[in-house]
């Protein structure tokens, strides 16, 4: 069943008076339980696309269908791990993780159980009572992941969630996320600029073109799980995506230096 459908999404931004076309008709179908990775040059509109799916940003034209119905507002059924983390500095770590649960009116005991589980998973139990400023960037990023997972959403939107992590922690979480996905059969859309991350995680990798963005190519990665980033058999997918991206990154750099 098609879980999420992006139809002809177009988005322009006003940039000091000039209008800049960022997304130029994006089409993407995501099946229920699918794991889709999005890669593309910096500034091509990956975060913008996730924001539109989340309902935080409105497209100029086109629509997002969730279970066949157009979405209009933001909602807890599509939880986002923001690129900037976006934790609340006025709350303790544990209350950050429980935020969405509290809003949903889940009783405290139950919330504690859930938050404990995800804090454990992120190996941050010791920091449950800390405030956000007391954490490193990578720790913040893990809290943001715990917070999104705790919501148990239908669709998980992840915007470069592992970008700030050291490689050991990342490898650990790459496996962990695959296990979570296999266990819960969540639908995940995962943005990254790390190609090896995308081939480890994705059933499919959608390569975005340089601005104005379209999906240049979708590459299906049919390989057993859990995958490890050092697995030789993933190399061919890796190189295929590198090829697709090379010209785009060149175009992007040229763009920015003009």
């Amino acid at each position: 069943m098609t879980k999420l459908q992006a139809k002809n999404i177009v988005k322009t931004f006003d940039h000091n008076g000039n209008s800049v076309l960022v997304l130029d008709s994006i089409n993407l179908n995501v099946e229920e339980g699918d794991f889709v990775c999005i890669v593309g040059p910096s500034g091509c509109g990956k975060s913008t696309f996730l924001n539109i799916i989340a309902g935080l940003e409105q497209p100029d034209s086109g629509e997002i269908l969730l279970n066949g119905k157009p979405i209009s507002t933001a909602g807890p059924d599509r939880t986002m791990v923001f690129q900037e983390g976006a934790l609340f500095p006025w709350l303790k770590v544990i209350d950050n993780v429980e935020f969405g649960l509290k809003i949903a009116g889940i009783p405290k005991d139950e919330r504690r159980l859930i938050s404990q589980r995800y804090l454990d998973m992120m190996q941050l139990t010791k920091f449950a009572d800390s405030y956000v400023y007391q954490l490193s960037t990578g720790m913040k990023q893990r809290i943001a992941i715990a917070r999104a997972l705790a919501m148990d959403p239908e669709i998980l939107l992840m915007d470069e969630p592992f970008a700030a992590l050291d490689s050991q922690t990342r490898d650990l979480l790459l496996v962990e996320l695959q296990l979570i996905w296999e266990r819960t059969k969540k639908t995940i859309i995962f943005v990254t600029h790390n190609i090896s991350e995308s081939v480890v995680l994705g059933n499919r990798v959608a390569v975005f073109k340089n601005r104005p963005s379209q999906i240049k190519k979708e590459i299906t990665i049919d390989y057993r799980r859990p995958r490890l980033s050092e697995d030789e058999n993933l190399q061919k997918y890796y190189h295929q995506i590198v090829q697709e991206l090379k010209s785009e990154v060149k175009a992007q750099i040229k763009d920015e230096f003009q």
């Binding site: 935080l56 976006a86 809003i103």
Partner: peptide, 11 residues
């Protein structure tokens, strides 16, 4: 971003 994150979690 705080308001976005909160709305995203159903607030």
């Amino acid at each position: 971003i705080y308001l976005d994150a909160a709305r995203n979690m159903g607030a």
